[in-house]
Design a protein around this nucleic acid. Structure first.
Lengths: 229, 229
DNA sequence: CTTCTGGATTATGCATTCATTATGCGGATG
DNA sequence: CATCCGCATAATGAATGCATAATCCAGAAG
């Protein structure tokens, strides 16, 4: 009885908890700025406090939580300053990813990206925001994947995770949305022509525009009371 | 982010352990690829296993350790593939830092950088490798600092920490050293003229050359036995 | 003599327990 | 009546104990 099909607990309890808690934070189940109820989560997950606290430490090192000594952990809330800081970095990372992706872009991968792109455009024309976001995320992740740089993907994933929950509140305007789709058209063009530097530039400005959308959403969300589910 | 005045060792024990262990790993006290003796470290630091294991989880999430389920933790060793992955990312991050730094570069900061630079050149002419490395590191960190982007600094610090221990084994050749100093001359030029894009390009290629040095050092270190004491 | 197998030892992973600290409430005092 | 101090309670941080799994060594068999 080896570990072949025993994937219930992926690797370890604490590692599973990290993923579960990250989902809770990203999905907004744990409101930003709110305290993290250690005991409550223990009973919810049916685990002891030790693996949970280990998970909290990891999430804190990722920047999703803030640990206050002897005062528990709180969900790190995304400020406008954070977005201003993170998106230039995201832009640089994605620009690098774009350049790398263009180098080892196969026809198959390009076809997959094209399929994703037009599916996303379809969701745009149908004004289906959630599916649009999902495909959008998939496209960016796929570019990271094609880039084939695990370190790059890891850093990007970390930043993206911190931003993703803010993206849920981002009701972008029609104009912004159209602009984003247009930029994705150019992204696909650059990919098709394997123009790495150009793709990098497009991604960088694309991310900068995304930052504006997020910031507008955050500004609109200021003072808003969060409805928990 | 909110570590403005909270950076003092407030969160004792566990956070202290993270720092201590990080130093042990970076300084090579814990050999790359070697197992992490949990009990030994507990007695060394005079703490229990719980905070130490929490620290191990954090360091693992930072990429300095690898946790094997039920098989303990090992120090992540830097492979050539890792260096190939990390340095393009470092290059992008530093390039961004350079651009940002040029925007808000004061005359004072420039003067400080210039002082550091010439002090480093002095160490170069005296063939003092260790001080040269230290000042070198300081210059790059100062550019990050001037950039004023905490997220960027944090990511860079994480990657730099993983590489730093490999830099100790990097006996670069005279030619490489001269090239590095020459590149730093151009870095100072770009800073003086506040040419952000140019500084970014220089830093990117500078990092690429650094990668070659590290890789040469790693290749020379392959199969080397750790010197006892 | 070498190899395989089985047991023992040790380390790791999680739960329970203990101690310390922060916070809230109540009473006393100005 | 308001404010401040002290106590109690609850929560967090650390330690120890227990169970499980892996590794190492020894003995036996080929």
């Amino acid at each position: 009885m080896t570990d072949s099909e025993r994937t219930i607990t992926r690797v370890s309890l604490h590692d599973e908890l990290v993923g579960r808690l990250r989902d809770l934070i990203v999905e907004g189940e744990l409101p930003p700025g709110g305290k993290v109820p250690e005991k409550q989560l223990c009973t919810d997950f049916g685990v002891s406090r030790t693996p949970l606290r280990e998970a909290l430490k990891v999430l804190a090192s990722e920047g999703l939580l803030e640990l206050h000594p002897n005062r528990g952990a709180t969900v790190a809330k995304l400020t406008l300053e954070d977005v201003d800081e993170m998106f230039p970095v995201m832009g640089s990372l994605e620009a690098l990813a774009g350049e790398l992706a263009c180098r080892n872009l196969t026809d198959e991968s390009l076809a997959e990206l094209r399929a994703l792109h037009y599916q996303m455009v379809l969701h745009y024309h149908r004004s289906e925001l959630a599916p649009y976001f999902r495909i959008n995320q998939e496209i960016h992740e796929k570019i990271l994947d094609i880039a084939g740089n695990a370190t790059l993907s890891s850093l990007h994933r970390g930043l993206s995770g911190r931003i993703r929950r803010a993206r849920y509140v981002a009701n972008m305007s029609k104009a912004r949305w159209a602009q984003a789709v247009e930029e994705h058209e150019r992204i696909l063009e650059a990919l098709s022509s394997r123009d790495g530097p150009r793709l990098g530039d497009i991604l960088r400005s694309h991310l900068a525009n995304k930052a504006e959308v997020i910031k507008e959403g955050l500004a609109a969300d200021t003072g808003e009371k969060r409805r928990s589910a």
